[in-house]
């Protein structure tokens, strides 16, 4: 062995860069990602412990201050029942996070696995998976979700309607699967995948260890984009009476319920829930982008 050492390149002896604390490094490398992460943390805290943040009970009806404009008493104003909008937004973040995050995570993950498997196995399996995805794509999102909700009914676990999550996740699956499949097809012909096959690794190992990490870029973009879609879809389903129902505080519901009747007189009824949804979507998208860059070793110095 020692005899081979002369072939070591002389200039290869430069010092190994120390791999820093990942959190600190992330903050330094992706400042915008850190900002968005803080927004997400705040939302999560609000969702987990709304009682510590919200000044009022979100369900308390106060006929004395119906449609009150924003003031020191009601920061974001009140709605048609005199309920405090700020408190409702705080409480609503739980619904938004759970439904939005969970259904996008579920739908995108299944979509990614199907997409990679489709590209990896090819041939008949690819054909079957893709035709099934085509069928799902043929239905408008809202119709598909409606059918699933109607078929599955409500199954509430810990106050969360699991079937609602599934209903929103299903339309996400084919959309992610198509994009991830396209990326996976180009990864599939890379020599390092051949090397993995030649080493006799199992299909599962090649899919999860070798292909999946190399399609994270499109996956993360789709995943974060669909969190936003999911929050909006949940709102639509709520409006149709199939999602979260009054009086539970939910951003989508706040936008779509009787706010529609009062937005001229009380624009704060729609502005603040809208801002909340936008901020959440913005934070998740930004965080997804930063995470993608951060996880790509080629972006590291």
């Amino acid at each position: 062995m020692a005899n081979l050492s002369p072939t070591v390149p002389a200039s290869a002896q430069f010092v190994l860069p120390k791999r820093p604390n990942p959190i600190l490094h992330f903050v330094r490398a992706q400042p915008m990602g850190a900002v968005s992460f803080i927004i997400i943390i705040i939302m999560m805290f609000a969702g987990l412990f709304p009682q510590f943040v919200a000044p009022y009970n979100p369900l308390d009806i106060d006929f004395a201050s119906i449609l009150a404009a924003p003031s020191w008493d009601h920061w974001f104003g009140t709605d048609a029942y005199g309920r405090d909008i700020f408190s409702r937004i705080i409480y609503g973040s739980r619904t938004a996070l759970v439904i939005g995050f969970a259904s996008s995570a579920l739908g995108s993950s299944i979509g990614a696995v199907l997409g990679i498997a489709s590209a990896y196995f090819g041939g008949r399996i690819d054909n079957w998976i893709q035709r099934f995805m085509d069928i799902l794509l043929a239905f408008p999102i809202i119709v598909l979700a409606l059918v699933v909700v109607a078929a599955l009914r409500k199954t509430v676990i810990y106050g969360v309607d699991v079937n609602l999550i599934i209903a929103i996740a299903i339309p996400i699956v084919p959309r992610v699967a198509r994009v991830v499949r396209a990326a996976a097809l180009s990864v599939n012909v890379m020599p390092y995948i051949d090397a993995a096959r030649a080493a006799g690794y199992s299909d599962a190992r090649i899919i999860f260890r070798h292909m999946a990490p190399n399609v994270t870029a499109p996956f993360l973009i789709m995943f974060t984009a669909f969190i936003a879609q999911a929050i909006l879809l949940e709102a639509s389903l709520s409006f149709l009476g199939l999602g979260v129902t009054e009086p539970i505080a939910a951003w989508g519901l706040m936008l779509s319920g009787n706010a529609a009747d009062f937005y001229r007189e009380a624009p704060w009824m729609v502005i603040f829930p809208g801002v909340a949804i936008s901020l959440a979507v913005f934070a998740f998208n930004l965080f997804g982008d930063s995470l993608r860059d951060y996880l790509d070793p080629r972006f590291k110095t």
Partner: peptide, 14 residues
């Protein structure tokens, strides 16, 4: 076992 031509694409970048 195998050794490939292109040293850029024969190693998993991740």
């Amino acid at each position: 076992q195998v050794i490939f031509q292109d040293p850029y694409s024969s190693l998993n970048p991740r």
